[in-house]
Design a binder for these strands. Structure first.
Length: 596
RNA sequence: GGACCCGUAGCAUAAUUGGAUAGUGCAUCUGACUACGGAUCAGAAGGUUAGGGGUUCGAAUCCCUUCGGGUUCACCA
């Protein structure tokens, strides 16, 4: 049993003995004591005043006395206002440490085939343009949340859904046909996703041009947007694609393959991967089929122009189109198909979609439509709705060219890391190749930590020029602490100092106890991060742990400590903390260097 | 117009989901043992949690309202 539950249980007993009343366990609030107060756990006594019929101090004193006498783990208590602060004995902490010090994987739960199954969809790129900063947040979040769920005891399947069909792809294809002069990644020397993205931009330029020409001829803007010839051509191309026109289909395959090559490189640099890939082109027909069936069963409606809709007005939402009047599919159509396919394949206890909060409405609708179609599990879909990434000057806008490209950003980060490391002369002893690896590790550590330390649900600001720091609450700061511990451990082993894990008699100091308390919190932190789908909680935890360790490191000597038992203990403590740092960072998808 | 989200020091962000004196980093200022690695550590200054009202022992957090910003509802994805 963990300490918190132990306390809750005994508070229950105390209330019964002292005031002859049983209390709903929910009223017993135990939280860890705030840093500026003495103690480890705090009981809020306000809820019990009605029962005790005494003032807060008296009530807290009585409960505190009872606990101190009857619970061996509780060594002392103090009272501030209505808060009863309980101290846990040093014996307990030391005993906890000796039992777990050697466990390099402390904090992570075991997973086997009986563990609950969770599917996490993330990334979900469109194949008409390269990845940008927003996708980076998505990929980092999806990967990290998956690792956290695994550590919390879930069986995780990471999947990607590639939006490889639809009108947006046709726009790139059409522009390539018109303006591309048969250029390919090989002939142009460009990364495939970037090349295809250029034609998506070219389409838009031409489209705008045609709109202004049409409005000059007297059409309204609305009409012009609908009737621009290049748009009509793209729509025609989509119809041909759905009819599997051979020429269109081959072009589509080829251009997508360029994009996939490009994506693969970016994914690799980001360090993310997937257990299974889904392609919209392979699922939209299943969606279409279900929509048509839904129409037959009367749960969907058809309008005069033969487009098919879901009427969700009874649920407080609007009507939603599911098939266009020309019979082609929309985004929702394939998402219905994909969900059904996945449910049939994996029957996961939970399906989580890592998708930006601009699609909150979409996922509400998806869940409802699935239920309407008779899929009860539709209500179990979970949308991990993350906030958008903004630049200091505002939203990224592709039309204004302010989109931060993922590949460029990563390269810039590596360049910065290289420069900083070389200025500090940190890696002079390493080979060029080894040094490059460290630059990369630090660069990605900075980038990933910077993005993951903020609450996923919130919008965040990203300043590419200044924001990524190497000092303070940053990835490299944490990596540095890890590297420093490794340095000590290397020295210890050169000095042939054995690290023991038994510490019977020991005059342990407060910083050491505090560090052990941090380690003790790791398992619950992982559980909490999983429950909230929040890598930020892991980031905050490891940052505080590292800060605490750096204070300890500064204040006390490890290798120069003369008492052998104490020296050995401090080495063991440092080693355990290094494990914790590494594991937490891995949960964020961040690697740690042995030196930097 | 309907629905939803957000507003915390100059900037970027925390706050155990209703708990104590609102933490932290950057930037600014001051200081640290010729170092088990100074990419570190100690300290100072910076706040009416957008404004107002309410709920209660207790509110950044819940309710109402005003202001400011954003997303979405499209035969876009």
């Amino acid at each position: 049993m963990n300490l918190e539950n132990l306390i809750i249980e005994n508070v229950g007993i105390a209330l019964e003995k002292l005031y002859n009343q049983t209390v709903d366990a929910k009223l017993i609030q135990v939280q860890s004591t705030r840093k500026d107060f003495e103690g480890d756990y705090t009981l809020v006594v306000f809820p019990f005043l009605k029962i005790s019929k005494k003032n807060p101090e008296q009530t807290a004193t009585e409960i505190g006395m009872f606990l101190k006498e009857n619970v061996s783990e509780i060594s002392d208590f103090n009272i501030v206002k209505g808060f009863l602060n309980l101290s846990i004995s040093n014996e307990y902490w030391l005993n906890f440490f000796t039992q777990n010090a050697a466990n390099s994987n402390f904090g992570a739960a075991q997973v086997d085939e009986n563990s609950p199954k969770v599917m996490v969809e993330y990334s979900s790129p469109n194949t008409n343009k390269p990845l940008h900063l927003g996708h980076i947040r998505n990929n980092l979040l999806g990967f990290s949340v998956s690792q956290i769920l695994k550590a919390a005891g879930k069986n995780v399947v990471m999947v990607n859904l590639v939006n490889d069909r639809g009108i947006h792809i046709c726009k790139s294809m059409l522009a390539w046909q018109k303006f591309g002069n048969l250029s390919t990644p090989t002939s142009s020397g460009k990364k495939g996703d970037h090349l295809v993205g250029e034609y998506y931009v070219k389409f838009d330029i031409e489209y705008k041009k045609q709109i202004s020409e049409l409005t000059a001829q007297g059409l309204t803007e609305e009409q012009a947007k609908k009737e621009a010839p290049i748009l009509l051509e793209a729509q025609e191309m989509l119809r041909k694609w759905e009819a599997k026109d051979i020429e269109i289909y081959n072009l589509w395959k080829e251009m997508n393959s360029w994009v996939y090559d490009g994506f693969e490189k970016t994914y690799k640099k980001l360090g993310v991967y997937f257990d299974k890939m889904y392609y919209e082109s392979e699922t939209y027909l299943l969606g279409k089929q279900n929509v048509i069936e839904g129409l037959k069963n009367g749960v969907l409606i058809q309008k005069d122009d033969s487009s098919i809709w879901a009427d969700l007005t009874a649920d407080g939402l609007d009507e939603k189109i599911l098939l266009r009047s020309d019979g082609t599919s929309v985004y929702m159509t394939q998402d219905i198909g994909t969900a059904i396919l996945r449910h049939n394949e994996f029957n996961a206890n939970e399906m989580t979609y890592v998708v930006g909060n601009e699609q909150d409405y979409h996922f509400k609708v998806l869940s409802l439509v699935l239920q309407k179609l008779g899929y009860d599990w539709g209500k179990k879909l979970h949308h991990l709705s993350y906030g958008m990434v903004e630049l200091p000057e505002g939203k990224m806008k592709s039309r204004e060219g302010t989109v931060v490209d993922a590949d460029d950003l990563i390269d810039e980060m590596i360049e910065t890391a290289r420069k900083t490391s070389q200025e500090l002369g940190k890696l002079d002893g390493l080979s060029l190749e080894e040094a490059e690896k460290v630059y990369y590790t630090i660069a990605m550590g900075a980038l990933k930590y910077f993005i993951l330390k903020v609450d996923p649900r919130k919008n965040m600001t990203f300043n590419p020029n200044e924001s990524i720091d190497f000092n303070g609450n940053t990835g490299p700061f944490i990596q540095y602490t890890y590297a420093r511990i490794q340095s000590i451990l290397r020295k210890a082993s050169e000095m042939n100092i054995a690290i023991q894990n038994e510490f019977k008699v020991l005059n342990i100091n407060k910083k050491e106890i505090d560090l052990i308390k941090y380690l003790h919190r790791l398992p619950e932190t992982i559980q909490e991060a999983a429950a909230n789908y929040s890598p930020a909680l892991i980031a905050n935890f490891v940052y505080e742990l590292v800060k605490e360790f750096n204070q300890f490191y500064h204040e006390f000597s490890i290798l120069k400590e003369e008492d052998e038992m104490v020296r050995s203990f401090r080495l063991s403590l440092s080693k355990s903390i290094a494990y914790a740092i590494k594991n937490c960072m891995n949960l964020l998808g961040i690697a740690v260097p042995e030196r930097m």
